[in-house]
Simulated assay, not measured.
Amino acid sequence: MMSEEEQLQITPEAPKGKGADEKAQKQAAHMQRIKRTLVACFMGIAMGLVSFYVSGTVNPATGLQPNAIIGVLFLMAGVVFQKHIFMLMRIDYTELGGKDWFYQAFMTFAFWFISWSTMLTTTLM
């Protein structure tokens, strides 16, 4: 059996250079994207619930609320407010391009629509 010292001499050390730094940067960038996506998802759910509770009582005949436009305004506010959440989370929002903001807006819209429409349909039963 080998001693610990002999085992340490046999196992090569991982090269610390350009590859390791590049991998760490990719992992950090991936974590930033995950955080941004989670912000969009939670903001969409929150704005969907706020839209439901603020827009008025659901009309059972149509399944709509009298002030439904307020819900759309909350959706837009949720997309804009994400910039401030990114500042609080210390995420550099200045590096985001148009494609990134479109993704943020779409994810917020998707979760807003799902949560709001779920609330509208469950109150009619």
Results as ranks from 00 to 15, higher is better:
I69D: 13
G17Y: 01
P66G: 05
G44N: 11
K35P: 07
A24F: 06
T62G: 02
N59W: 01
V79C: 06
V58A: 01
S55H: 01
Q65P: 01
F81W: 10
F42N: 11
T62P: 00
G71I: 00
L73D: 09
Q65G: 02
K23S: 11
G19A: 11
I34A: 13
Q82W: 02
V72Q: 08
L75Q: 01
I45F: 06
G78R: 02
E13G: 04
V79F: 15
M76Q: 13
G78P: 00
F81E: 08
K26M: 07
R36D: 15
L38V: 08
A24H: 12
R33W: 12
K18Y: 14
K23F: 09
I10R: 09
L64E: 13
A29W: 05
N67V: 07
V80K: 08
Q65I: 00
R33K: 08
Q25R: 15
R33V: 08
G71T: 00
V54E: 03
G44P: 07
A29M: 08
P60W: 09
A61P: 08
A61M: 11
A24G: 04
Q82F: 06
T11Q: 04
Q25N: 07
A20R: 14
T11G: 04
Q82E: 10
V50I: 12
G19C: 10
P15L: 15
T57K: 03
P12A: 12
Q27S: 11
T11I: 09
D21R: 08
Q25E: 15
I70Y: 04
V80W: 06
V72R: 07
N67C: 10
L75H: 04
V39P: 03
P66S: 06
I70V: 09
Q65L: 00
A14Q: 12
G19T: 11
M76T: 15
A77K: 04
A77E: 10
L38E: 05
G44K: 04
G71N: 02
M76A: 15
L75R: 02
M76S: 15
Q65K: 00
L49Y: 10
S51K: 00
V54D: 00
A14H: 11
F74Q: 05
Q27F: 15
F74M: 11
I34H: 09
G63Q: 05
F81A: 09
M43P: 03
G17S: 02
T37Y: 09
Q32K: 12
Q27Y: 15
I34Q: 07
M47H: 12
V50D: 14
Q25L: 14
I70C: 07
V58W: 00
V80M: 10
V58G: 01
Y53N: 03
F42W: 14
M76L: 15
L75Y: 05
H30Y: 07
I69A: 14
G19D: 12
K16V: 12
P15K: 15
